[in-house]
Simulated scan of single mutants.
Amino acid sequence: MDFIKPYIQIIEERLSQLNFPDEPENLYSPIKYSLSVGGKRIRPALTLISAELFGSTIEQAVPAALGVEIFHNFTLIHDDIMDEAPLRRKQPTVSAKWGRDIAILSGDVMMIMAYQQFQHYSGDKLSLLFSLFNKTAVEVCEGQQMDMNFETQRNVTVDEYIKMITLKTSVLLAASLQMGAIVANASAQNQEAIYAFGKNLGIAFQLQDDLLDTFGSEDDFGKKIGGDILARKKTFLFLKAFENATGEEKKLLEEAYFSYKKPNPDLVKQIFKSTAADKLCREEIEFYLKKSLDSMNNINVSHPNIELLKNLSEQLIHRTV
């Protein structure tokens, strides 16, 4: 993804320039750590790319992009607490390094810091950005709650799962793009089209993430492989495998996901393959990728960033990390 490196470098530079109080040190150190241990910076880069696409300058879009990235990292801190995850981006999570209570409080401050970035705007632009950000933040929390509910809910449908990942993951990707459009005063039609592009791309992105969590390389992926299976998360892979399994395979899946016995990730992976769940997941990824790319046809401006976004979407979906 070399072609978006200039946008990512801008985000990295501006994140490094954020000022934090010296005290309490154990409140702000986790925030600095969270923002400095890497990450793809895809969401804020999309904000910059979108703003440029619709005629704004990158500089005008930087505060919105930083707000998106700070909020995203806040959600990761709290997500890792709930998942009791030891690693994020090949590094100890904030909760593993500083403890649960500090991680919660540092995450709360990051949410406030995200709001502060939007205060760089005024008038209708501020109102539109705040409205979109608030709607998206609530949806992300709704998606997280659905994800948690699914862990103990026996019957989950594929449609329910797609709704959950839409809320938990894809709406923030979509909002990142629409925020750039808002900064650029893009038309309502163009805002709707770029949002639809991001929403469908986000669904495909999360399905690919689920696939990598099960079949990826821990060295490449940056976190423990098989974590979704150990957490008994009812991903698309599980739902399709359970739907297609018969006899002994279904019994083994029931034992792995609905008993007190610790799941065996290797055994579950074998069942995912034998039931063609992995193949079906890849097909679903391509379906949402196509929907995403089709949305770009509704954008009525001409700019090189349209092709950039199309190329980026292909690379994101076919990534290994």
Rank of each mutant, 00 (worst) to 15 (best):
I306F: 09
N190S: 06
L293I: 12
T246R: 11
K97L: 13
T275W: 06
E142M: 11
Q9H: 14
L53T: 06
V158I: 15
M296F: 13
A65E: 07
S36W: 07
F71V: 03
V140T: 11
L128Y: 15
L312D: 09
Q60I: 05
I271R: 00
L27S: 05
E248C: 06
S295Y: 08
K251N: 12
F197H: 07
D220T: 05
D213R: 03
A241W: 06
P265W: 08
V68D: 00
V268C: 04
L280D: 14
L312W: 12
L48R: 02
N19L: 13
S295T: 01
A137R: 11
K251I: 12
A241R: 00
K5R: 15
D22S: 14
P24H: 08
M111V: 13
F205Q: 02
M146E: 08
E284C: 11
H318K: 11
Q145R: 15
A96L: 09
R89W: 02
T235R: 03
I8G: 08
K250V: 02
V268N: 00
L53F: 04
A231E: 12
E307G: 13
Q189C: 10
S16L: 12
A61I: 03
V156W: 07
K223R: 09
T166S: 14
K279T: 14
M148A: 12
L308T: 10
E52Y: 09
F20A: 03
L35P: 01
K125D: 08
N298L: 15
K199T: 01
V183R: 08
L308G: 07
L207R: 01
A51S: 12
D22F: 15
L128F: 14
K290V: 10
E255Q: 15
E23L: 13
I182C: 05
I285M: 12
R41A: 07
A61P: 06
V140H: 10
I299S: 04
D2Q: 14
D210T: 03
T169I: 04
A96C: 11
H303G: 02
N73G: 10
Y28T: 01
Q208I: 08
L18Y: 09
Q17M: 12
I225G: 01
L129C: 04
S217N: 15
M82G: 05
F221C: 00
T166Y: 15
Y161Q: 00
E218W: 01
S176R: 01
A96N: 13
S170C: 05
L126R: 10
F258S: 00
P265E: 05
N149I: 05
F258R: 07
A45Q: 05
D159E: 15
N300D: 14
K240D: 12
K240V: 12
K223H: 05
I229R: 03
G39E: 04
H78C: 07
L126Y: 15
M164G: 01
A204H: 07
G180R: 00
L48D: 06
L173S: 03
F197W: 06
